[in-house]
Each structure stands twice: as C-alpha cells, then as structure tokens.
C-alpha cells in the first residue's frame, strides 16, 4: 500500500452511473473507503449492490463517472484491479469440470501464486472441506462451493477483498468462522468491502456502511455513530428505505 493510496482511499468512486437500457441500476454514486475498513454496502434486493461490486472490479463498464481501486482506474485497467484484489461474486461460479484442488491450482497458475497447493491445504483444513478436494465443482453443495470461492479470493492474500453476500450459503458454525477471519483480516491492516442485505452481519462486523436503494445512495456512515445514538442498524435502515420508497 503506497502513501498515495492511503491518502486517497482504497476505493474511490466519483459519480458512478450504470444504466441497462432504460433501467438505472447505479445512479451517481460517490464513495470513499479507507484502508483498514470493513465496509458494508447495504440495500434491499435489486438495489444495485451487485452492480456496484461489478463496477468496482471492472466486470462492468460504468455508463458515467469514474472509480479507482488501490489507485488503479477500473475502466482503464480492470485486469490490474482483479490482479490485486480478491473477489467473491454473488453466485458461486467455480468451473463445473475441475475439482476443488484443480480449481485452486488453476487460480494459482493464473495469479502466479507460488506453492499454491500448500496454501490450499491450509484452507481445506480451516474451512473444513478436506474430503471434497477431489470432487468436481459441479457436484459440490452450494456451501462447499462458497468455501471454495472464499478460498480463491483470499489465497493470494490481497490487501483488499470485495465480497458479494459473504455468508449466504454457510451454516452457523462456518458463518462464525468466516466472520472471525474477516475481522482478523481487517485488523491486520487490510480492507474488506462487502455487500449484503443481512443487517445483523453488517452491524456485527462492519465499521463503515452505506445504504443503497433503487440505485441511489441514501446514507453513508459508521456503525459507531449509530451506537452513539443508541440506534439499531435495522431500524435506521428500514426508516431510510421507507423514506426512499415514499419520498
């Protein structure tokens, strides 16, 4: 992390717009996320959270506006961005005909990660799916696929990870484990950007948050501020979204 990146923020978005035909999925969003934050992008289903992550990781090209991630322009250098960050997409998409081990080996080859299989061993143990390492991804359960996608996102130890619905397919034991991992990861100076509609998760692990509704940013703030006001995130979220819907 360079001094410049620390100053300007790990993620900087300025007036981002994404339009699909007549639908404006993301409408003029500006955001700044600092290093060491565990930032939650919250919003109801269809609010534009996934589109926002896709824009920030160069999977989609913005209709207007600009964004930098780790100092790289997402429009000009999307591959550079994906090289330096870890990404877990909304739907787990490991290739059908590779086994879990092969997929991680493949990721290692593409990302040029030395000793990737040794690193994979640690993850197979940590996320408790050692017995599935030689099974084709198409035959894995959703939970196991999510574990695999979690592993591929963190196996190269990126300084920034962008995760769409991080806990969606995990059982309570695995949810706890993953939450602990994310919290510890941020404590080490890394940054995590998650999108979720499960407010309990956001309230428990996020430091900063933004609320998105119908593609528009309704609020940015910190969980600490809410606590100071003795307010719960879900009450705050519901009141804002209701205002956004009726206003």
């Amino acid at each position: 992390m360079s001094l410049m990146e620390m100053k300007q923020g790990v993620i900087e978005a300025q007036g981002l717009v994404k339009q699909f035909g007549d639908v404006i999925a993301v409408n003029n969003i500006s955001l700044s996320i600092r290093q060491g934050e565990l930032f939650g992008l919250l919003g109801p289903n269809g609010s534009g959270k996934t589109t926002m992550i896709k824009l920030l990781t160069g999977q989609l090209r913005p209709t207007a506006g600009s964004a930098t991630v780790l100092g790289l322009d997402v429009k000009k250098d999307p591959v550079g961005v994906r090289e330096r960050v870890g990404i877990i997409p909304e739907q787990e998409t490991p290739p059908s005909f590779l086994t879990a081990t092969e997929y991680l080996d493949f990721v290692g080859e593409v990302r040029h990660i030395p000793d990737v299989l040794k690193k994979a061993d640690w993850w197979f143990d940590y996320l408790d799916f050692n017995d599935k390492r030689d099974v084709l991804c198409k035959d894995l359960s959703r939970g196991t696929r999510q574990k695999l996608m979690f592993t591929q996102a963190f196996i190269h130890k990126p300084t920034l990870a962008l995760i769409d619905e991080p806990l969606i397919n995990f059982d309570p034991i695995m949810q706890r484990k993953v939450k602990d991992y994310l919290t510890e990861y941020v404590r080490c100076g890394n940054t995590i950007f998650i999108s979720t509609h499960i407010l309990e998760i956001a309230e428990e692990i996020c430091s900063g948050f933004a609320i998105l509704h119908k593609g528009t940013l309704l609020h940015t703030g910190t969980v600490a501020e809410l606590k100071e006001r003795d307010q719960h995130l879900d009450d705050f979220f519901l009141s804002l979204v209701e205002k956004g819907t009726h206003g």
Binding site: K54, T57, Q59, V79, R82, I87, I88, T93, V110, A153
Partner: peptide, 14 residues
C-alpha cells in the same frame, strides 16, 4: 459451451 466469462470474473483474465 461449458464455459462462461462469469467463471473468470474474479480472476485477472481479460
């Protein structure tokens, strides 16, 4: 046929 770009969106592949 069995490969969509979505499999590569989390990787640095153009």
């Amino acid at each position: 046929m069995f490969d969509t770009f979505s499999s590569y969106t989390c990787l640095p592949v153009s």
